[in-house]
Design a protein around this nucleic acid. Structure first.
Lengths: 150, 150
DNA sequence: CAGATCGGTTCGAAATCTGAACTCAGCGCA
DNA sequence: TGCGCTGAGTTCAGATTTCGAACCGATCTG
């Protein structure tokens, strides 16, 4: 054995991506944020295959990001809602949108603008709540949290 | 035609996810943020198939997120670096990590902590630069940017 | 020369994704 | 009574991707 086998990092990013690291998963979450929790609507608005959407909704529900609520009995109808964990994905969605607005919007500008408090366009910025400064790449250093017991 | 065909939204999130909406793509970007721009190292640290990593690095480079630099001639060796667009993905990475730290960390806590300015643990928070308030789900309303000319 | 490093490519098998069709239940309506 | 519609999926065959492992070519290292 040549010691070359530094296995993949234990990493919160990797873990998170196991759940939402797939286009349709995050687009499903986007739809729920936009107020569409119905299966058919989500399929239409995202363009995902129904099959895939159904599978994603299952994993998102299992992961505790969405909840399935019955809003009609008899014709049994369901609607997906965000859990607290799901709502906490908002920064992910917002930062993805923000990046796309900046780098992928055509000459026409971003297709959608978020109005914050019905007052002004949202200008998302990430800061460090501890010191108040904007978070910039290169100003944080990764530190292993705890010495592995092995 | 039954008017039921509201096609998928034109959406910055969707566009962004076309590029980085895949586990290995974002893990590759994570590695570069952590200072590893070498192919082999990225493969080892992420666990991605070499094949897939090579493909992702190509798309990320084509998308202008990474740049491929030759750091050694003769044994031709390359290294990937972040472009400005790539560095601007930092909030995405940080918010994914933050979410995972909160919801997927075991009893041992998050496996990695980011020290901000070598001084305190990073506490990422998203605010609206326009009004200074924290960005919360439900406080922004989507508004179509411009009336489609069609 | 034998290995190791580095940055990939190539391969076949396995998993996944896709689109289209199908299901089941009730509702509107003529 | 039958016809089509909506909603929420499921089922299926076929295309695409992914995976894992092996291979390649170049170059230093002993």
């Amino acid at each position: 054995m040549t010691a070359a086998a530094a296995q993949p990092r234990a990493c919160s990013i990797a873990r998170t991506l196991e759940i939402v690291g797939e286009k349709w998963a995050l687009l499903a979450v986007r739809e729920v944020f936009l107020g569409n929790g119905r299966f058919d609507e989500m399929v239409r608005r995202t363009g995902a295959p129904r099959d895939t959407m159904a599978a994603r909704l299952r994993t998102l529900t299992a992961a505790g990001i969405l909840e399935r609520h019955q809003y009609s009995r008899h014709p049994d109808r369901f609607e997906y809602q965000l859990t607290t964990a799901g709502r906490d994905l908002y920064p992910v969605i917002v930062s993805l949108r923000s990046w796309g607005d900046r780098y992928l919007a055509g000459p026409a500008g971003p297709p959608l603008v978020l109005r914050h408090h019905d007052d002004h366009p949202l200008e998302p910025q990430m800061i460090c709540a501890a010191c108040g400064e904007p978070v910039r790449a290169g100003e944080s250093r990764p530190v292993p949290a705890a010495a592995p017991a092995g």
